[in-house]
């Protein structure tokens, strides 16, 4: 993805190599970084249009896409508001809408609910759940309840190494734990 160059080898996303075909990969993915990476002095509408156009949509298509995102993420009331004036929860929603406006095949969400209050987090969970079945989502988080609520498959990482993958049930069975937090501690503790 060109955020970090691989030290060796390559990774393949939908059969496209990140080292050999970076432009092809970039066209099929999108990300919402941990920090709410939005253009602060642009309105919600302008942020969405900008992202759509960067991914190659023309004026008409970008307006249609922005309109669809506004409806999907309930951003209609803050359409003309500068993004820096939005609450943390609304900025996160905008950030994810900006990631989805290019209709990515694979979406990376980096700690999407970090710092949000309970209500904002639940709203965002609902929005992410609504995407399931349409887009492959790779979500990183430190919140175990978030993993349990949202994930079909789970990967446990520690110090850059993937220690285990599987469904929640598979990880519980593998560790003999009764919940994900205990399974996580068993896997990571065992590796430490």
């Amino acid at each position: 993805m060109h955020l970090i160059e691989p030290t060796s080898g390559s990774a393949f996303l939908l059969e496209a190599s990140v080292t050999e075909e970076p432009q092809k990969v970039k066209q099929i993915i999108n990300i919402s970084p941990q920090e709410t990476a939005v253009a602060p002095n642009l309105s919600v509408w302008e942020n969405l249009i900008m992202m759509a156009r960067i991914y190659g949509q023309d004026r008409k298509a970008s307006a249609l896409s922005a309109d669809a995102m506004i409806k999907r993420f309930g951003l209609g009331d803050v359409l003309k508001k500068k993004s820096k004036a939005l609450s943390g929860g609304m900025q996160r929603r905008l950030s994810i809408a900006m990631a989805l406006i290019s209709d990515p095949k694979i979406l990376f969400l980096d700690e999407p609910t970090l710092g949000l209050d309970v209500l904002a987090r639940r709203e965002l969970w609902a929005a992410i759940t609504a995407l399931k079945g349409k887009t492959t989502i790779v979500l990183t988080t430190h919140y175990m309840e978030e993993v349990e609520a949202l994930s079909d498959r789970i990967g446990i990482m520690n110090r850059g190494k993937l220690l285990a993958t599987g469904t929640l049930e598979e990880l519980l069975a593998q560790t003999g734990a009764s919940n994900l937090e205990d399974a996580f501690v068993a896997l990571v503790g065992g590796a430490a």
Partner: peptide, 17 residues
């Protein structure tokens, strides 16, 4: 600098730009 530190640039680095 603000684009870099706010991760806005990281987002755009993964785009086709």
């Amino acid at each position: 600098a603000k684009d870099r530190t706010s991760s806005f640039l990281s987002r755009l680095f993964t785009s086709p730009m």
